[in-house]
């Protein structure tokens, strides 16, 4: 039976001291806290048998540069699980470079909104399985959901459910759906919108933003109908690790990989 997936998310920024890539957590895409070295943390997740890893370079789009291929290249030397990288990818050539450096999947967000053709071009060149469209959303005061780009700085007119379906039509292989409002708050996933997106597409949906306790993962799978749940803050700061979280999920009757 196909298992649901636990995906630690490694968000990176250039360090304020020295410029190398550091692992950070954010709250509502703001309030950055530097927490360590992304490669060391990735190795820990490998030891804890995470199902996949997502690396996001938060500075790449704002600084108008390509994502840090070196980090992925180093990670790929010792990490034998699927790796997704995102942040700053704007061309098919960027996909190729990321793949050559060991990425299995490449996530696009701002570029997908600003140039939807990229989804199709990359999908035709590398296969749909390589193309993850990352969708960041916020809820307005009146409850309406909107897609935001540029690291949560730019509001668009897109509705996340409609946009996700459009991404699938254009050739995306997976959706990474993140609630900006809940990012880093540990208040739980937005299971309502997750479910609506999951029901509107036939490609896998990864829910992210807000996991604070193991039960939040269970809610994301059962109520949100997510295929995978991704979390950054949850795994970075707590005494929780993927193995313990997995046991909670398994106890709730959800098919999940128990350690090998």
């Amino acid at each position: 039976m196909l298992k649901r997936r636990l995906i630690p998310k490694l968000q990176m920024k250039s360090s304020r001291f020295g410029g190398q890539m550091v692992l950070v957590t954010t709250v509502q895409f703001d309030k950055v806290i530097e927490v360590g070295d992304p490669i060391s943390q990735a190795k820990i997740y490998q030891a804890q048998a995470a199902d996949e890893l997502v690396f996001l370079d938060l500075d790449a789009t704002p600084q108008n540069r390509k994502p840090m291929a070196e980090v992925i290249r180093k990670a790929a030397e010792e990490i034998f699980m699927p790796i997704t990288i995102g942040g700053g990818v704007t061309t098919v050539e960027d996909f190729r470079v990321m793949q050559q450096n060991g990425a299995d999947k490449v996530s696009i967000n701002t570029a997908a909104v600003e140039n939807p053709r990229l989804i199709t071009d990359a999908s035709e060149r590398f296969g749909a399985q390589c193309v993850v469209v990352s969708i960041d959303f916020r809820q307005d005061a009146d409850g309406t959901y909107y897609v935001w780009t540029r690291g949560g700085k730019q509001k668009t007119a897109l509705n996340p459910v409609v946009w996700a379906a459009e991404c699938e039509r254009l050739g995306a292989g997976e959706i990474l759906l993140t609630s900006i409002d809940r990012d880093g708050t540990r208040g739980g996933l937005d299971v309502e919108i997750t479910r609506r997106v999951a029901e509107s597409v036939s490609i896998p949906v990864i829910a992210a933003g807000g996991c604070g306790v193991a039960m939040d993962f269970v809610d994301g799978f059962l109520q949100g109908k997510a295929d995978a749940v991704s979390a950054g803050t949850f795994f970075c700061f707590q005494d929780q690790n993927p193995m313990q979280t997995r046991a909670h999920i398994n106890n709730a009757g959800i098919p999940i990989r128990l350690h090998t």
Binding site: L2, A128, S202, I203
Partner: peptide, 12 residues
């Protein structure tokens, strides 16, 4: 109901 394609993930 149809299941999602591609199959992505860990399967026994």
């Amino acid at each position: 109901s149809p299941l999602r394609v591609p199959q992505i993930g860990w399967n026994s």
